[in-house]
């Protein structure tokens, strides 16, 4: 599935109006620019650091969900957005990096002892850090040269790590809140259904005679 990233555009699905990929990045960075602008002008509410930290994390999760939605959209609704998936996936990584940077710089003030304690003692931080580490090789290999060098199959196998990252991100959000408020549960449910869809589909495929997925 993932290996088709560069190939077959327009083969499946009806022709979506094509927009330049750079536009995805420009629009994608709007939330970050707005957040930093409001932050610098002290318009992020009573607890601006926390608001910035949480919003950047939330956008990372949203972009992660968007990349996971591209395959089902194509398979179920015949909408092909494959050519934008790399940009959206990279946006997820950039937001995750900004989220992490906010935590390290603004939240903890480079107190690496406190950060290390957080990583080893707090499951939500452990999971958050692990998720970022899992995302890193995906970001690094999100270019044509990497696909050529690794070969489509290896590349696709690496990029299946996105499923682990999605589970990690959803858990990270669930573990940081008190009680069970709706918002993190809704995000966890979306991640669960996007992964569940793939799981069910692979079961169905396996039970069908031969014909392997391209």
């Amino acid at each position: 599935m993932a290996g088709q990233a560069t190939a077959q555009r327009g083969k499946h699905g009806f022709a979506m109006p094509r927009v330049p990929k750079i536009l995805i990045y420009i629009v994608g960075f709007v939330p970050a620019v707005v957040l930093f602008y409001l932050g610098v002008n002290d318009q992020l509410g009573a607890d601006p650091m926390r608001y910035l930290e949480q919003s950047l994390g939330l956008w990372a999760l949203r972009f992660l969900i968007a990349t996971l939605a591209i395959t089902p959209l194509r398979q179920i609704l015949n909408i092909n957005l494959l050519r934008y998936r790399r940009a959206i996936g990279l946006l997820c990584f950039y937001y995750a990096a900004l989220h992490l940077l906010t935590y390290v710089v603004l939240d903890q003030g480079f107190d690496f002892e406190a950060i290390w304690t957080d990583i080893v003692k707090r499951p939500y931080i452990t999971i958050g850090m692990a998720t970022f580490i899992v995302l890193t090789p995906l970001a690094v290999t999100s270019n044509n040269a990497a696909i050529r060098r690794l070969g489509g199959q290896v590349w696709a196998r690496i990029h299946r790590l996105v499923y682990i990252a999605a589970i990690g991100a959803a858990l990270h959000f669930l573990l940081v809140v008190k009680s069970w408020p709706p918002e993190p549960m809704v995000y966890a449910a979306i991640v669960a259904s996007l992964l569940g869809y793939r799981f069910v589909r692979s079961l169905v495929k396996r039970s069908m005679p031969k014909r392997r997925a391209a």
């Binding site: 002290d42 607890d47 601006p48 650091m49 903890q108 406190a114 707090r122 939500y124 940081v176």
Partner: peptide
């Protein structure tokens, strides 16, 4: 059990750059 109680952020003290 899920987070440290060693430090705190004082609301309204230094905006984005509030120190713990």
């Amino acid at each position: 059990p899920r987070w440290s109680q060693k430090t705190e952020r004082r609301i309204g003290e230094g905006g984005l750059f509030v120190k713990r």
